[in-house]
Design a protein around this nucleic acid. Structure first.
Lengths: 214, 214, 214, 214
DNA sequence: GATGAATGAGGCTTCATTCAT
DNA sequence: CATGAATGAAGCCTCATTCAT
């Protein structure tokens, strides 16, 4: 609205409040698309509509910008779904299904999915960031799944199974679905339908592949 | 055999023939560890024990080296297991299990696992490579899984299920296990045991989570 | 006097009038400590308690600020002692001693000592400033010494000697004492006592080193 | 000679041996003339006849280049004159004169004089370098002077005087003569004659200013 | 007057690539 | 074939300077 007015008026607009968010958004897009090393700060600034120097008013350097991007998108994701499980009344199967589909919606369909690819790609160069992500997102997210499984095991609804180990396995198809978006889907391979994929996944998860298990 | 020839010519001659392989091996290690952009050709050459100039005698530039590394490790992986399925006599469950465990052994435990991480990380910058990998490794690998599923479905051993969709889901835990090695395992998170993971995975896969599926 | 006026206007008004002085004082400190190029205008403004923009209300640019700092501290130093010599009644030895000790007190112990270091350091980049300092401070200061020497030579108190040449030599230990403060004293070397140094200097100056000069 | 041939032949000449010295020489000139911050590495490289990148083959960064310049010129200066004093047979006056004139010739007339100005100018930014210079050049140089004075005092040739304190004073005129070359002499003030200056200095030093000291 | 967000030229540094030896 | 010195484009970062508020 008045953005246009501001832009007409002078060389730049004063937007101290909005700047960091704009820069982080621009940075996220480019980082996910090109990776850390290939993303030039010039381009980030340009995409955010500011000059190179402006970036340094808000972020000390490239690494800090990167970390800020990750943090910015991780923090709000934490604890968003943690209370669901506590009050859930239905079957464990439905609870687990809820959690898994929720994760796809809260991660896979948001910018956070891009963070995930970033982390995988740059874990070698930014181990602290990877650890932070692992602890705050992966572990806490997995804990939800583990609890739901345990609930089902205890109620006799699920097979006796090591809930922690099962969590790793069960989380994998969701994570892969997320990663696909930023790797193979973008480069020629025909994209798969998340809905069909998720349906197949849940079917397999609950009933297994074999008709009459030995 | 040509050992004798080599011995006559001396160790320098033997090395000469091995140069490209040594360079590719050095490059793979560094690329996996640091990523494409962060890997310096100086270091590759040094690790291979040659000068930087020598590298250019075998590879036109950094990109070609990268592609060669990927191709070098992809090509032999292709077709290694493709005949297994044709002649298999046992149950479809055992066949599928064979294929999945085989994939872990042929990919996850080898250098090829590093390639996978590379592809994910650099898919944005090298779409052709990613596509190549997708088509030649993922798709062909998945085709094996699909065939095994279909075999089981047709024989009535498995539930009626879309084999192609199921393949995506079933392949995911294996791929994630592979990716973990190069992302979270390396940076503080306690590594998981592949054996236990795979056992849990196969249990879940075949019998599902729910005791009496609805 | 104008204190009352200031009080009516409030402390902000008082500060407003003092701004340039505060900026110059801040600039002097930082320039002496860090040198011209290393001193950032941000820091000068911050140290003076104003914004960077304010600095430009009083000084056209960094170079002008630098020149103002130098001028500000040079001008009052000029002519401060020039009348001493005219009316002096005592011996030439005492007069010269007075002048030399006075120079140390008026220069060495004040901020002006920092200017000297600045000039030496930046003479290559600001020749006009160096020349200005040389002409207005060094030359005029030396003229006093020269006159005192000449007075002593004419009165027979001092040896026949070229007073101009002698001035250069005699001024040197004082200048070195000043420069030390900002170079070696600040970095690990144990600082010397100015008083002892000056006493030794005057002893040597007047009686020389040799017991019975040839 | 074959330099010209080399330059005609190709883009560059291979001079691994000579490069560092050429770069150090170029750097010294520019550093003395412009100071540390104002000296651009581009210019150093250009002055040495190489490209910017070549500089980094020999010096890790600007600071290391600076330190190398200083070290390169300090080390050979150390100990050059230290044996003179041991074997000297003549009068202490002549010995001291020898040392002082020798210092002018070994420092003032060489590139080392530029180093001295650099140290003074950059002592604040490179305290370690300043300390190194102080310890290895100033202190050791002064020790020679102190010994000579002590020799004269003990032999009754010189007045009873604190030799260490006297050293500081006596060294000052020589150092100032050296510093002048790079500050006031270069910027408009008429240069003084070192010979006349030194003669006046020695006269004053030995016989003092006063005809009949009190 | 005062502010401080924004700018952008310029310097340091890296590293893929070249080529005389 | 092999070398490694040399190159130079390109990216990160700093900071003097500007100007809308």
């Amino acid at each position: 609205m008045d953005c246009s007015i501001n832009k007409i008026k002078g060389r730049w607009e004063r937007r101290k409040e909005a700047r960091p968010q704009e820069l982080l958004a621009a940075a996220l897009d480019l980082l996910v698309e090109r990776g850390y090393a290939t993303t030039r700060l010039d381009d980030v600034a340009a995409k955010a509509g500011v000059s190179k120097g402006t970036l340094y008013l808000y972020f000390a350097n490239k690494e800090e910008l990167f970390k800020a991007v990750v943090r910015e998108h991780i923090v709000p994701a934490i604890g968003r779904a943690e209370q669901t499980i506590e009050q859930y009344q239905g079957s464990s199967r439905n609870l687990l299904q809820e959690i898994l589909l929720g994760r796809w919606e809260q991660v896979g369909n948001t910018k956070l999915s891009g963070i995930m690819k970033l982390i995988v790609a740059e874990s070698g160069n930014f181990p602290e960031i990877a650890k932070f992500y692992h602890d705050e997102v992966i572990l806490r997210g997995n804990a939800l799944i583990t609890k739901a499984i345990q609930r089902g095991v205890e109620s006799g609804e699920f097979h006796q199974i090591d809930a922690v180990q099962a969590t790793q396995v069960i989380a994998a198809p969701i994570i892969m679905l997320i990663l696909r978006k930023h790797s193979f889907d973008t480069c020629g391979s025909e994209p798969i339908s998340p809905d069909t994929y998720l349906e197949t996944f849940l079917n397999l998860l609950f009933q297994g592949l074999v008709v009459r298990p030995a």
